[in-house]
């Protein structure tokens, strides 16, 4: 008798159909479009793209901002996720609402709000001058630092939630056992909690990094036209310059870089996590 396919697999059909039509087919079109030119298949557009030092700057901008934002999100998000996992009852509900509710506020609204906060006479500038960090009011708006701050605000829930979902499954007795056996808090964190939380951290990093690398609205409002990223360059090529050739090249470069970094960091951390 042959093995009959598990009928439960059919449940994946709607998602498969949907993603196939709205994601896989257009993506294949984009990939094909980036290498097919009149006269045949060629990698020349990519060679041209990387021959131009400006495009290295743009790719550098994209990766640097994505990495810094991910780092800020991790620094803020991890402790928050710990607090959320430890909290009970009303406190936990309050923290969850505080994390999830802002997701319903549009990115454009958030970016406009940051525009007010990051101004020369904005709150951030006033606080830093008041604390004596800055001698005179300065502007963070339309700077790379301002962009990272604004992007971290938008994307931090995507770090907190996956980390939290893993932390809450860790049996608290594991940590207690380590303490009983004489582990210092730092040793316990490095050798027990962190390896167990790693899957959540890795998916948080993958979420935040790929979303930040491809964000379009936030940089166009918070840093402007003078700081190009691969995503803003792609958007402009398609929407304004009608240069679909450059647009498909930059889109594929962005996709390749993001996938490489997310997949690379995932397998690296798995290996590190597994060895400890």
């Amino acid at each position: 008798m042959r093995n009959r396919p598990d009928p439960v697999a059919l449940l994946a059909l709607p998602a498969l159909l949907y993603l196939g039509i709205v994601y896989a087919v257009p993506l294949a079109g984009l990939l094909v479009g980036s290498v097919v030119r009149p006269g045949g298949v060629t990698l020349a557009p990519f060679a041209d793209f990387f021959r131009d030092p400006f495009h290295w700057t743009v790719a550098g901008n994209t990766l640097r901002v994505a990495a810094l934002t991910t780092l800020v999100c991790l620094a803020i998000g991890y402790p928050t996720a710990v607090a959320l996992a430890r909290a009970r009852g009303f406190a936990q509900a309050a923290i969850l609402v505080a994390i999830i509710l802002p997701l319903s506020v549009g990115v454009v609204v958030k970016a406009f709000a940051w525009q007010i906060v990051l101004r020369r006479d904005g709150v951030v500038s006033q606080i830093l001058v008041g604390l004596g960090v800055w001698d005179e009011p300065q502007r963070l708006l339309f700077t790379e630092a301002g962009l990272v701050i604004g992007a971290a605000n938008v994307f931090v829930p995507f770090m907190i939630l996956p980390v939290y979902s893993v932390l809450k499954t860790i049996d608290p007795r594991v940590g207690e056992a380590a303490t009983t056996l004489g582990a210092s808090p730092l040793y316990r964190f490095r050798k027990v909690t962190l390896p167990l939380a790693l899957p959540g951290i890795v998916s948080g990093i993958a979420f935040v990094f790929s979303m930040t690398a491809s964000m379009y609205v936030i940089p166009s409002l918070l840093v402007g036209d003078r700081f190009q990223t691969l995503a803003t360059l792609t958007g402009r090529s398609f929407l304004f310059m009608r240069n679909e050739e450059l647009g498909s090249t930059t889109a594929v470069v962005l996709l390749a870089l993001t996938v490489a970094i997310v997949v690379g960091s995932t397998s690296l951390s798995r290996r590190l996590g597994g060895s400890s």
């Binding site: 502007r139 708006l141 339309f142 166009s220 409002l221 402007g224 036209d225 003078r226």
Partner: peptide, 8 residues
Amino acid sequence: NLLTAYTQ
């Protein structure tokens, strides 16, 4: 002197 170059 530039604050920004706008698109919006």
